[in-house]
Amino acid sequence: MTNYLIEKYYRTERLPHIWCPGCGNGIVLKAIVKAIDNLNLNQNEVCVVSGIGCSSRATGYLDFNTVHTTHGRALAFATGIKFANPKLHVVVITGDGDCAAIGGNHLIHAARRNIDITTIVFNNNIYGMTGGQYSPTTPTGDKGTTAPYGNIDPNFDLCELAKSAGATYVSRSTVYGVNMITKQVEEGIKNKGFSFIEILTTCPTYYGRKNKKGNAAEMIKQLNEITINVNAYNNLPQEKRENKIVIGELYKDIREEYTEKYDRLIKSF
């Protein structure tokens, strides 16, 4: 299966990728490709757009229409692409810095419009490409090269943000549970509207090393320990919920999609 996916959906001549040993990005990428394969989408009609950062390099390895844009702006480029040609399946690959810091405003407004874009955030809690600076999702107290004494910023709950802004599909998963990622990406793409999927992944090189989290395998195990499925979470008494990160499908809604709304306007003349 893996070989089939690689040969069909990767630009194999571009491999090996630039990611560090132990990086979780490859796990996420495979899960995405598997979801696209499960949905049997026409590669020519899939457009994958990314910003800048480690995860955003993913587009270079994928055999779709791929656009590696400027830092933080993937969603704005993707909005132009989707709005110009609504037939395309548009997927955005972005990181926690790219999406939540420099691109935060675009996230809010793409969600508000409910434009049919599936946004997948590779959240590794750190700026990896530039060498380990703290990001908006670095847990408070954790270290980065620009937080040598511990990060004093409160960290973002991106799923809550996306939900509040108007996303019609919101979910979270981790690289510990690959099948859950695939399922969520499938659901996200199927949702006719703005889908937001946060995937917790590992950066042993910077986040792990700075915060003594152990090796890649240990970090992935920790992701399992700190997360809890949404159904189990809902059954927990209030006092046991603290410090747990909820995974699974967190929110769904049905609302008219942006490009369809505009097409109705065009047809009205």
Partner: peptide, 22 residues
């Protein structure tokens, strides 16, 4: 298609995206 984007950067980015899409 007309779209009022959330800022100037988003506007030029959307324009470039739309041009790529033809």
């Amino acid at each position: 298609k007309f779209i009022q984007m959330e800022d100037e950067i988003a506007s030029i980015s959307a324009v470039i995206g739309a041009s790529l899409a033809g």
